[in-house]
Design a protein around this nucleic acid. Structure first.
Lengths: 151, 151
DNA sequence: ACTTATATTATAATTATTATTAATATAATT
DNA sequence: AATTATATTAATAATAATTATAATATAAGT
């Protein structure tokens, strides 16, 4: 954990940004809840536990900053809120998501499944791909099993 | 055009919804601007030209309804607004998008490029895919050429 | 034409996000 | 260590997008 904080600190410094206590507290929350997909409000409430004096706007600014530096990715699953998701260390691309339309759970897929597709886009459309967003909507394993049982 | 309106009318009736003049005007705007990715506000302004008395909330409700019936897809490219995009007739899946980070243009890819990827998700993760969202962020052909010229 | 459920308008309320501003903290320099 | 310039923050206020409410109007079947 400290190691990753340290790396993020360096990334900030490289662009002459500071890792203030508020920013650090925010990053810590993101690291602790790496599996989740927290909204700004969620993050705010969790950071408040560590640093009660922090303001919501600061959390927004911090998340925006981390987003610009590609430390977190800002995603939107179609409910009105933006969610913030730490990039895996060293990951070139954003990971993919499986959103269950029954229970709302969100799974992550870290493998890059799109290499072939990106080649097609590059060659056939002449579009130079920098990043991607891929989300599948469907029914997760658990909900499928639950349905079988009750039917 | 009339043919497609008619089909949509039937789809609404099948779920016992009515095709009111307001709804029809909204659908017409979507059909006329099929290539675009209009926000609710955009749609509202365009519908107002045909039906000046329409209210913004009605447009929102109509878009929401069309969205539920899978006649349009609601998408979000990361700027704060939802955009609404007509499904191609008979399309099982949502089409893909290429968003240019230079000029902001949005191209559509109608081909389904994800068949293989969906099989992997299905088999390896046990996730039953119902739909997908795929957006590539990068640099479009035009902007690439523009850069070459000015460099 | 009448009826009844459904949809609409107009407005208010909510929610998410961003901007402002004055105060504070930090880093760099002397 | 004091000074100065710069960056950051808290505490609002402001804005933008969307949703809810309640009274009125309308579509579509009888």
């Amino acid at each position: 954990m400290e190691h990753r904080i340290d790396r993020i600190k360096k990334q900030l410094h490289a662009q002459s940004y500071k890792l203030t206590p508020q920013r650090e507290a925010t990053v810590r929350v993101l690291l602790e809840r790496e599996e989740d997909h927290l909204s700004a409000e969620n993050v705010f409430l969790l950071v408040k536990e560590k640093a009660p004096e922090i303001g919501l706007a600061t959390v927004y600014r911090t998340l925006e900053l981390l987003s610009e530096l590609k430390i977190v990715d800002k995603i939107n699953f179609g409910d009105g809120v933006s969610r913030y998701d730490l990039r895996k260390e060293g990951a070139e691309h954003f990971h993919h998501h499986l959103v269950c339309i029954e229970c709302g759970s969100v799974e992550e897929i870290v493998d890059d499944l799109l290499e072939d597709v990106e080649k097609i886009v590059q060659n056939d459309w002449g579009f130079q791909v920098k990043d991607h967003r891929l989300t599948f909507h469907g029914i997760c394993k658990q909900c499928q099993e639950a349905t079988v049982k009750t039917t």
